[in-house]
Design a binder for these strands. Structure first.
Lengths: 90, 90
DNA sequence: GAGAGCAATATCGTTCTTGATCATGTCCTT
DNA sequence: AAGGACATGATCAAGAACGATATTGCTCTC
């Protein structure tokens, strides 16, 4: 399933046309991104929760040269499946 | 950010009222769940991708009794942040 | 439909998640 | 506003993911 399919789902279940549906998908995604960028957690009961956690790993590996390389510290997005997703994937 | 906030985002960016917006969120989530339950992968460029992978770990741990316990094999949902999410969390 | 733009893959050592479960905290519905 | 429902945290060890990068393959845009 790709982004267009999601827009199609919106189109089929609302009074919005295709273009507006696609715009709607973008709007929602941007809202989610913004929420995460502001260090908020996203919690969608029954589906999943997303949260930003800090990375601790400070190394990596250069495959070609086969040696360790330094990695800049940063953050990571943690995804936790909710109850419904756990059921379908158990 | 929680589910109601997402519905609010829809309400503010479409001709849908609150109830329809909430219904829209459920519709989309159900489409995503169904997609995953059918072993499809979800790929939203610039945001993230979700895919179902089979679990390999076959053990667990009972904290109270402090001993290993068997775990039934099943599936797991893997989340991979897309470019935009990587940027905001780097 | 073609070209451009991301995602997928392989690699390997260290860090981190997975898994069950109860208690607690947070959210949603009545 | 309160109660019911669901997420969170703690716990431990072993197996899996993470990280960079270039190439390949799929997706999106025009």
């Amino acid at each position: 399933m790709i982004k267009n399919d999601i827009a199609l789902t919106i189109e089929n279940n609302s009074e919005l046309n295709r273009a507006k549906s696609l715009l709607m998908v973008e709007t929602i995604l941007n809202a989610l991104k913004k929420s995460l960028s502001e260090d908020e957690k996203i919690e969608i009961r029954g589906f999943a929760s997303l949260r930003v956690v800090s990375k601790k790993t400070g190394y990596g590996r250069d495959i070609r040269r086969k040696k360790q390389i330094k990695i800049k510290q940063g953050k990571r997005i943690k995804f936790r499946p909710g109850q419904d997703l756990k059921n379908l994937s158990s």
